[in-house]
Design a protein around this nucleic acid. Structure first.
Length: 727
DNA sequence: CACCCTCGAGTTCA
DNA sequence: CTCGAGGGTG
């Protein structure tokens, strides 16, 4: 048997070698020279040759070199890992409460914890040292991933002693997961490298954990051993090193939360929560969010709370797990053949779903941009049924790697906008086909081309008469940042054009009730006591709104013209600098480009727009229709907020988004659309979203409604005194 | 020239 | 909310 001194030396060697290995694979300078490393390694091998009982699974000799073939070998768990029964709504949960109650005679204390959407694993610690890490597999036999575990800092290799002791045996269960923030970063990197992106953090965790690090190491060793010289050999080594480093970095991002014990020797616990305390004391990562609740109501509150705060947690959550806390009561309830009766998983509605990609169609926008979009089997996700999602451009389709006919992962970005994440590769059967970007406009047949060399977007150059573009422009005039005409949207625009009531957006303000009567879309059968067809209520109101909107401020008129690169903020700058549409029309490119925020491209676009005859016709017709062509000179009032940039998010009592922004600009302040380092203040109302997170992470001060009121009344300093403490 | 910031444009569903 | 691209800055 090995002496105590030999055991200690063995442990030192193992730690030193493991540390050196980790350091080596990070970009840091290696801590040990090759010779030093080899010396330690030889000593370890010799020590284990003399005392074979030391050569446990955690030893680098077992995981490096000889034992590499063990990767993914089946491992039998010491105790079976059960799966959990699921409850998908309050009713099913109540039914479980009832069963527990009738089994025990009362509702017992219950431990509630977040159900991490990750990868279940089983780790065995013998005498405080990690012996094996395995995936769950079928619950009885999993796959060995011990070799990779050495690169995962979140998996303790050695347990902390408590009162100088560690359990003789401790089998723990937990969830390996990929933090959401790291997931987004890794996926961006994958995309940059032209590699397939991961559908979700869970997939990323699984993919990372199952990487064949051992093979990469072997390949690299083999190439190095060849000892070839020259640029090509060096490049090959460099590439393999970079790939290995990336693979290791992904393992380093993995995190672990333990949530159960299997076989145990040398430690006693009486409750589930007590077991967590013991595991935590030994240095195992337990969740800080687990809570014991004494009543069913407490459990429901826990579920409800995290239903609303799903995104405030560092990992994805697919539900809540509820466990009877007392182990004696757990035993009393027992298990069915597949799941314990003493635990239940409450599942939240999924946020990432699968559906069939039926087709990829293209849309032609107001500016002629041709955008591919996904047509899918309708599917419910995050509260609504989705059947379409934009794919932005042909390169995005390529990058996502989706084929028509694929099963695809779908989510709602920011809980609102549907986003296709990528294909379910395993579900392919060969019948899928690639999307081919059309070469000609689907609406007018004109050949598509990029606006300029190197652009990713293809456009239909037939600006003047492409039906899609005209329709979109007409509808844009009624849009929220243009004339904001209620009733003038897609449908009305299509009808006006279809019936020939307008040729393009120029004719809108010359429309009469008689015109509209010639089009079915705007009319109905005569009612009692009426003669002939009548305008519908909606048509009357649209006409009235159109007439009533001619007096809108100049910037809205400019936005409505659909000049390339000119949206609301730029239009505001133009209106302020020139004061009238005529002045803008007559301005030279140089005069335009002199405005802050307007460079050569936008200046050119504006100048060229007014050089076009049919564009000037639009302006003339609008003028005849009574549209405002100049802003009245407003005396600049007090400007206490001059030089201040704020961002407004969420909803503020008593303000619309627009009126809140107006209030700030009236006082000389600037309202930006997104949070950056330059943002001086974030005004966050109710239900603030991702901007709030961003502001927090950038250290931008955040105020609520009171702070906003103070800002308007007394300026920035007053507002800052209402700033929320950083979370 | 490489960055960061903003803006533009298209966008989903109830 | 997303991507792409224009503008300004160091």
């Amino acid at each position: 048997m090995a002496t105590e001194a030999e055991r200690t030396r063995w442990a030192e060697l193992v730690d030193a070698i493991n540390e050196a290995r980790v350091a080596y694979y990070q970009q840091d300078a290696p801590r040990l020279s090759d010779a030093e490393y080899d010396a330690l390694y030889s000593e370890l091998i010799e020590l284990e040759r003399q005392h074979p009982e030391l050569a446990s699974g955690e030893s680098p000799t077992q995981t490096v070199g000889g034992a590499r073939s063990e990767m993914f070998e089946p491992v039998e768990h010491l105790m079976r890992m059960y799966s959990l029964d699921n409850a998908f709504d309050a009713e099913e949960l109540d039914a479980w409460f009832d069963r527990v109650q009738s089994g025990l005679g009362a509702v017992p204390a219950m431990l509630c914890e977040l159900k991490i959407d990750g990868l279940a694993v089983d780790a065995v610690y013998r005498h405080g040292r990690l012996e094996s890490l395995a995936t769950r597999g079928d619950g009885t036999v999993g796959e060995d991933v011990t070799y990779n575990a050495q690169f995962i800092p979140a998996v303790p290799k050695v347990l902390d002693p408590v009162d100088g002791r560690v359990p003789a045996l401790l089998e723990v269960r937990g969830e390996i997961f990929f933090p959401v923030a790291d997931f987004d970063r890794i996926n961006a990197e994958q995309a940059d490298l032209g590699l397939p992106v991961f559908a979700n953090p869970r997939n990323t965790a699984a993919g990372s954990l199952r990487q064949r690090i051992d093979r990469r190491e072997r390949d690299l060793d083999a190439v190095r051993a060849e000892g070839r010289e020259g640029a090509r050999a060096e490049a090959r080594v460099a590439r393999l090193e970079a790939e290995l480093r990336r693979a290791v970095e992904r393992l380093e991002n993995l995190r672990l939360t333990v949530h159960g014990v299997g076989a145990v020797e040398g430690v006693e616990v009486h409750t589930q929560s007590g077991a967590y305390d013991v595991m935590a004391a030994h240095g195992l990562p337990v969740s800080s969010r687990a809570r014991v609740h004494e009543s069913a109501a407490g459990v429901r509150d826990f579920i409800e709370f995290y239903g609303e705060h799903r995104h405030d947690v560092e990992h994805e959550i697919d539900g809540v797990v509820i466990k009877v806390d007392e182990l004696a009561l757990q035993r009393q309830l027992g298990e069915t053949s597949r799941a314990p009766r003493w635990a239940m998983a409450y599942k939240y509605p999924p946020e990432v779903v699968r559906t069939r990609l039926l087709d990829i169609a293209v849309n032609v926008g107001r500016t002629g941009r041709v955008t591919p979009f996904a047509v899918m089997e309708p599917v419910r996700v995050a509260g609504s049924t989705v059947s379409m999602a934009t794919l932005h451009n042909a390169f995005e389709v390529q990058r996502k790697g989706v084929l028509i006919g694929d099963m695809v992962f779908l989510r709602k970005a920011g809980d609102v906008i549907p986003e296709v994440l990528g294909p379910v590769i395993d579900d392919r059967d060969g019948s899928e086909r690639a999307f081919v970007m059309p070469t000609h406009c689907p609406e007018c047949g004109t050949e598509l081309r990029p606006e300029k060399e190197g652009d990713k977007d293809l456009r239909c150059p037939n600006t003047r008469s492409c039906p899609a573009q005209v329709r979109e422009r007409v509808s844009h005039v009624g849009g929220r940042s243009a004339f904001d005409v209620e009733g003038l949207g897609d449908k009305a625009a299509a009808a006006l054009l279809h019936c020939g009531l307008v040729e393009n957006e120029g004719d809108l303000f010359l429309l009469t009730a008689d015109d509209l009567l010639r089009c079915d879309f705007f009319t109905r059968e005569p009612g009692r006591g009426e003669e002939g067809r009548q305008l519908t209520e909606n048509a009357r109101s649209m006409l009235a709104n159109l007439r009533g909107s001619v007096d809108r401020p100049l910037w809205r008129v400019i936005v409505a013209l659909s000049i390339r690169h000119v949206g609301a903020p730029t239009a505001t700058d133009l209106a302020r600098s020139f004061g009238s549409l005529d002045a803008i029309a007559e301005a030279s490119v140089e005069e335009l480009a002199a405005i802050d925020g307007i460079g050569p491209t936008i200046a050119e676009a504006v100048h060229e727009w007014f050089a076009e005859d049919w564009h000037r016709d639009i302006v003339d017709k609008w003028r005849r229709g009574g549209v405002r062509m100049a802003d009245e000179k407003v005396e600049a009032g007090e400007q206490p907020l001059a030089g201040l940039t704020v961002v407004i998010t969420g909803s503020l009592e008593g303000f619309t988004r627009e009126s809140a922004a107006q209030a700030v600009t009236d006082l000389g302040g600037k309202v930006a659309g997104s949070v950056s380092k330059k943002t001086q203040l974030l005004v966050a109302g109710e239900n603030a979203g991702s901007k709030l997170d961003k502001a927090m992470s950038l250290g931008v001060p955040v105020v609520g409604a009171e702070g906003f009121a103070a800002l308007l009344a007394d300026g920035l300093d007053a507002a800052l005194s209402h700033a929320r403490p950083e979370a």
